[in-house]
Design a binder for these strands. Structure first.
Lengths: 200, 200
DNA sequence: CGATGAATTGAAACTTGTCAACGGCAGTGG
DNA sequence: CCACTGCCGTTGACAAGTTTCAATTCATCG
């Protein structure tokens, strides 16, 4: 029924369009969630970490793919099992509704970013969101870790690798951030970076 | 507790950022749902018609605004009342979870559109989606009604009014659609239009 | 019929994408 | 141990799609 599995880095463990037989709960690691166009263009709709639920789709096929960017451990249920659990534990249903509502709010925020923000605003927003995620405190934890590649960031922000790279370089030139390592960003001027994020 | 109200055209009946005290169920009309940036840029995250639920937010403030583009009738509940109803009718919770899941899938599709599709692909996708919505049948119901302005379409597709207009003109020039009236589109070549929508 | 706002069209500017070259780091194998 | 190889990231020059600004036409309504 409920099976615990591991997906090594790079492994696609959910395929867009496949029959949505299962429901996933990530217990460790990070995955990218994405949709693809026939010609290969890709839009990453989010990054899923510990505690995330995947496969809520009502339809009978997955609406997106999921791929491990760090080794991912997850717990997998059949849909039948999920239905049984929902019947047995009404609280779980409430929890899932909360989760879905939150994701919906996040999705709307991302639509605003993709539809109306400039490249600089997108990257600044991304860094600030990442910071919130890594350090849930309000500390001067100016250190942001990026487990994903520039390609992932680009596909998440609706930009190209080059624009992401140039924009990060530009933010560094303006002394808003530091880049000790491609996957490590230091926020030097939080207020200034917020001002570049286009409000909100 | 549950109050039925009407919002005349142009009326904003949900304000982004306001305390999320109520939950809405639209019984007739159409509303635009949108988020705004401080400088006035706007992203429409969706259009809500008959049967739509609004205000699912978990947080204590609305994540978006809602404004009537046609006179909108809705049923309004206090959050407390909603909670009571959810306790009394578990089926309602299932229903809301289904609704939220579907909206999430739609939101992800929209992210793909906003992040990775060209103007022409966006407009073609929009027309096809509208057609599905207006005529739920597979008939040659090539007639699509657009109750929203070009400005709304632009803010929904992450484009400008001018680009939307030019793109529609272009599709007409290619004999894929007809435009008897700005708010009435006729799909002349469904297959061809689908090909322009960028797959999916 | 005139007035007002929406929609269309045109020309120029700008942001971002594309193509290409280069540099750096890691893993591999001689 | 060190060259080799491949991938990732950065940088540059140029092209392209979309936006901006402006003018014109078209619908709606009093």
């Amino acid at each position: 029924m409920a099976v615990t599995s591991t997906a090594e880095q790079g492994r696609t463990f959910i395929d867009e369009g496949d029959p949505a037989d299962h429901f996933f709960n990530i217990t460790s690691g990070t995955a990218r969630l994405f949709k693809s166009l026939p010609d290969g263009r890709r839009q990453i709709t989010g990054f899923a970490g510990r505690g995330h639920f995947l496969g809520l789709a009502v339809s009978n096929s997955y609406a997106f793919s999921a791929e491990a960017i760090e080794p991912v451990q997850y717990c997998r249920f059949s849909r039948a099992k999920l239905r049984m659990m929902l019947d047995d534990f009404p609280a779980l249903e409430k929890r899932l509704l909360d989760v879905a509502s939150n994701e919906l709010v996040a999705a709307q925020e991302q639509m605003l970013l993709l539809g109306r923000k400039t490249a600089r605003e997108r990257v600044a927003s991304f860094l600030l969101a990442r910071r919130l995620e890594s350090a849930a405190c309000v500390s001067p934890a100016v250190h942001v870790h990026l487990p994903m590649t520039r390609s992932d960031i680009a596909d998440y922000l609706g930009l190209t690798i080059e624009t992401v790279s140039r924009t990060l370089t530009g933010l560094k030139a303006d002394k808003l951030i530091g880049i000790p390592h491609p996957s490590e960003i230091i926020i030097l001027n939080h207020q200034g970076l917020t001002a570049q994020a286009g409000g909100h």
